[in-house]
């Protein structure tokens, strides 16, 4: 009985979460006539075209948006890791601040996005940094750092203290311990954390929307611009969505084991 229920429900669950994605990829290969059709047969059996992708890459600034997003996401991820790695290590090894400081760090994540957006908009305006990549890199540092500290904290806790104590007895200095003992052991955890920071920066919309106009605009801004003007070009928009979500889909597939752990700030091992 439970078996039957399972094999009946499981395909339904998979269908619910996968079919919208399949449909948007199909749409990106359709002509406008095929998109606007009301004929269900024609919706499924159409002759695929690549015009939407060609439009996307030649008629919009999509290439620049992708490049911007890559540069911004990678540099902010590196910055985040430089700040978060030592901090998380300190929290995990020495209980610095007895957990209060860790709680303060995590509570930045509760801030409504606007609380930081207003002052920084004024500050960046004053400094003439609006619409620069630098400004987004800094904002994404803020956006991701508490998350990274929390996740890395969990990973550091899994490294046994005895290893370090043994190394100290063997005469290793602080730097040697970090380089030879901790770093190799934290590498996988750090890679996962960095991947998450990269994806969060890649997906971020509100700050990009407020702080950039033309020069530093990111992929999400390009995506939003399809929905800005009166006549929506659904085909090209679908193509844009398909390219924009490709890295995140790939990440979701390859990091399966760590997604739940990452999204729950390390609280659930998944």
């Amino acid at each position: 009985m439970k078996r039957v229920l399972f094999w009946a429900a499981m395909p339904l669950v998979v269908f619910t979460f996968v079919s919208p994605l399949v449909w948007i990829y199909l749409t990106s290969l359709k002509t406008n006539a095929d998109i606007y059709t009301q004929d269900l047969v024609r919706m499924f059996f159409f002759s695929p075209i690549l015009d939407n992708y060609i439009n996307l890459f030649t008629k919009t600034v999509f290439v620049r948006e992708i490049l911007n997003t890559l540069i911004i996401s990678i540099s902010s991820t590196i910055l985040v890791m430089l700040v978060a790695l030592p901090a998380a290590y300190s929290f995990a090894r020495y209980e610095t601040g007895h957990g209060h400081l860790l709680f303060v760090t995590i509570s930045t994540r509760m801030f409504p996005a606007a609380v930081a957006a207003i002052p920084f908009f004024m500050a960046m305006k004053g400094l003439g940094l609006l619409d620069t990549r630098f400004c987004l890199v800094i904002l994404y540092l803020y956006f991701n750092v508490s998350f990274a500290v929390f996740l890395l904290y969990g990973f550091f806790r899994e490294i046994p203290v005895e290893l370090e104590q043994a190394a100290t007895i063997d005469g290793y200095g602080r730097i040697d311990i970090f380089r030879k003992i901790i770093f190799p052991m934290i590498m996988p955890g750090a890679a996962i954390t960095a991947m998450f920071c990269f994806i969060f920066s890649w997906n971020e919309f509100l700050y990009a929307f407020l702080f950039t106009r033309n020069i530093a605009r990111t992929v999400t801004i390009g995506l939003a611009s399809f929905w800005a003007s009166g006549q929506v070009d659904w085909g090209t928009m679908a193509a844009c969505i398909c390219v924009a979500i490709l890295p995140t889909l790939a990440a979701a597939w390859f990091m399966q084991r760590y997604i739940i752990r990452g999204l729950s700030f390390g609280a659930v091992k998944g």
């Binding site: 499981m10 669950v13 998979v14 979460f17 996968v18 919208p20 994605l21 449909w23 948007i24 749409t27 998109i35 606007y36 059709t37 009301q38 994806i199 890649w202 997906n203 919309f205 992929v219 999400t220 995506l223 939003a224 399809f226 929905w227 659904w234 928009m237 679908a238 969505i241 924009a244 979500i245 995140t248 889909l249 990440a251 979701a252 597939w253 399966q256 997604i259 999204l263």
Partner: peptide, 29 residues
């Protein structure tokens, strides 16, 4: 693989998700 399929939506940009559904939920087509 089934686990992987179900996890797919989680990391997509929320903006992309909403625009996708906006398209699926259009009144006419």
């Amino acid at each position: 693989p089934i686990r992987g399929f179900i996890l797919l939506p989680l990391l997509i940009a929320p903006l992309a998700v909403s625009m996708m559904w906006n398209f699926f939920l259009q009144y006419d087509f």
